[in-house]
Simulated assay, not measured.
Amino acid sequence: MPISFLWSRVPQPECRLAEASSTRVLVVEDDLPVGAVAAEALEEAGFTVLFATSAEKANAILAEEAVDVLFTDIDLGGLDGCALAQQALKAQPGIAVLLTSGRSRRCYADRLPPGAAFLAKPYRLPQLVDEVLRAVEATSSH
């Protein structure tokens, strides 16, 4: 399957860009090319993006920066994304959590934080942007 098929881009409507403009997203992905493409797509959609390649680096960012959305791979090596999400929710209770994995959501059902969204890999970049916007809307409506 060619990468252009998996990572296809579509223009984002202007109204969606306005919603994203003040939203800070922390992308955590140990596969650097995958994380870089995801971060770039979110930046192009108008989000402010912070990037970490491990849960440990993400925790250091969370200790220093206010973040609206945590988008993390689950299988990170070392501390995994589920544990990172739990720690992020303790550090920043209003944070929205979006987890991703190439494995089924069922594999992690007992470890996903309540209210966390899940995006299966491989995902399309427009799906990622939509899921991040949905996560922001869900946390702002509470």
Rank of each mutant, 00 (worst) to 15 (best):
A45F: 01
P113Q: 10
S140M: 10
I61L: 14
E56T: 14
M1I: 13
L98Q: 02
T53R: 11
I95W: 00
F118K: 01
L6W: 11
P11C: 05
E19Y: 02
I3W: 11
Q127T: 07
R106M: 07
D73L: 08
K90E: 14
A55F: 11
A88D: 10
P13M: 01
A20N: 07
S8E: 13
E29N: 00
L42I: 03
A88V: 10
A63H: 09
G46T: 05
V132K: 02
G46V: 06
A20T: 10
R9T: 12
R24I: 15
E131P: 00
R16Q: 11
H142L: 00
L125N: 05
L62Y: 02
P93L: 08
D30M: 13
A20D: 02
S101T: 09
Y108N: 09
V69P: 05
R111T: 06
L79G: 12
D80Y: 09
L62E: 00
V28R: 01
M1T: 11
R124Y: 09
R134N: 13
D130H: 03
E131G: 12
A83G: 09
L79M: 15
S101K: 00
T23V: 15
L17I: 15
E56V: 15
R106K: 08
E29L: 10
R9P: 01
G102Q: 06
A83N: 01
A20C: 00
Q87L: 15
L42M: 12
I95D: 02
A38R: 03
D75E: 13
T139C: 04
S101E: 07
E131W: 08
P13A: 08
L26M: 12
A66Y: 13
F71G: 13
V37Y: 11
F71K: 03
Y123R: 00
I3M: 15
I74E: 00
K121G: 01
A117F: 10
P113G: 11
G78I: 02
E29Y: 08
L119G: 06
F71N: 03
L112C: 03
A38M: 02
T100I: 05
T100W: 04
F47E: 01
